[in-house]
Amino acid sequence: METWSEVAKIQPLASRIILNSIKKDRISHAYLLQGERGTGKEAIALLIAKGLFCENNSVSDPCLHCNACKRIDSGNHPDVHWIEPDGQSIKIEQIRNLQKEFTYSGLESNRKVYIIKGADTLTVNAANRILKFLEEPSRQTTAIMLTDNSQAILPTIRSRCQVIDLRPLHPGEFQNQLVKEGLDQRTAVLMSTLTNNFDEALAKSHDESFAIARRLVIQLVEVLLTNPEDVYLFIHQYWVTHFKERNEQEEGLDLLLFAIKDILYYHIEHEAGMVFFAPSDELLEKAARLFSQEKLLAMLQAVLQAKRKLKQNVHPTLVMEQLTLQMQR
């Protein structure tokens, strides 16, 4: 999203609020943009910053072509500062460095912008330190704080920001965007179920590792249908050797959950809810014949239990061994 008209298609209320502020020259000294991943927080932050520094600003949209716009896009503008979590959190040293930077005059103007990604990860000391900026606002300073988890933001910080709520992307709109980028409809539906981050969805759709993950889920269903006695061997030879990292293991279980749900949906003739299989898939039809609804519900419960065990740091191989034993019954 590079223009406010594009933002308006996804976040109409947010774009209207911010655009009105820009047109009336009433930019807030601090914004808190809160919403799920993929709702456009970074794109909106960039647009605000470009609007403040654009050399050819036409009141609403920045030109996107001047040196200021290009440098903001590349992260090289000297008066636009990004703060991101260092590891799991934003630490007080990062805020101290930011404060030190703000003691200097702007290199090209007196205006400065700082953008804090993952503002919910501020340590208590860092959060208290950032309050100094928010409690003593300067007309020439704009803070933009981004968060996926608004509940973790200190009330003292929230009260000093203009809070902008970003709505989740509508699945249909998201899928249409992915199809325009070349994804087939079935893949777009699956990606919109896994993530609402556009860039992540595109990257995942072209990721060979993810393609293998999809195939492994299909193969696991086939083994359960045709040779259930071999499922334990399949898990050790193929599944655990591919899904090595925790996020991969969780995603593998998510895909398996979608596949089992689709078989259940086929049973109850709710094809619109399917995300993993195509309604015409022969494997889907075969699985629906051999697995009763009661069996599928038990399998769903087993997968959900396996996901909980992963969260509890149970060894992933043990989790999958227990899961396959439950699905064999």
Rank of each mutant, 00 (worst) to 15 (best):
L46D: 13
I27P: 02
P228H: 06
L264F: 14
R111F: 11
G40Y: 11
K286T: 10
G273D: 05
A287P: 12
A30Q: 08
D79F: 02
P12A: 10
R167A: 07
K132N: 05
V303L: 09
F277Q: 02
N97G: 03
L146Q: 04
T187R: 13
E229K: 14
L216I: 13
E101A: 08
F243M: 11
I115D: 08
R308D: 13
T142I: 13
L107C: 02
L224N: 04
F133C: 13
H270T: 13
I10N: 01
V240G: 00
M327C: 15
S150W: 01
P316S: 02
D86N: 00
T156S: 08
P155Y: 08
D165V: 12
L166G: 01
Q140I: 11
R139K: 09
Q88G: 03
E101R: 09
C66V: 12
I18S: 11
A127D: 04
N125Y: 06
L300A: 07
F277Y: 10
K24D: 04
L52Q: 02
N313Q: 12
E282F: 07
E271N: 07
S138Y: 10
L283T: 15
K23G: 02
R186F: 01
T324F: 11
R71E: 12
K50I: 08
F198L: 14
A143H: 05
A152E: 02
S60E: 14
L257A: 05
H242L: 10
P228W: 05
V80M: 13
E245Q: 15
L64V: 04
F210P: 09
W239T: 09
L169V: 15
M1S: 15
I90N: 00
T123R: 02
V231D: 04
Q237N: 12
A288C: 08
L220E: 13
D184S: 07
F243V: 12
I164T: 00
R308S: 10
V303T: 06
A298R: 12
H267N: 09
V319A: 04
S21A: 15
N125I: 11
W4Q: 08
T195Y: 03
R160I: 08
L122W: 07
E6P: 05
A45I: 09
G75T: 07
N125A: 15
H65S: 13
I83R: 05
L283P: 06
A49I: 03
I83P: 03
E55K: 14
F243T: 09
W82Q: 01
N125F: 04
D254W: 14
E181D: 11
H236I: 07
I218S: 08
G35I: 06
Q162A: 00
I48K: 06
E42R: 13
I18G: 06
G106S: 02
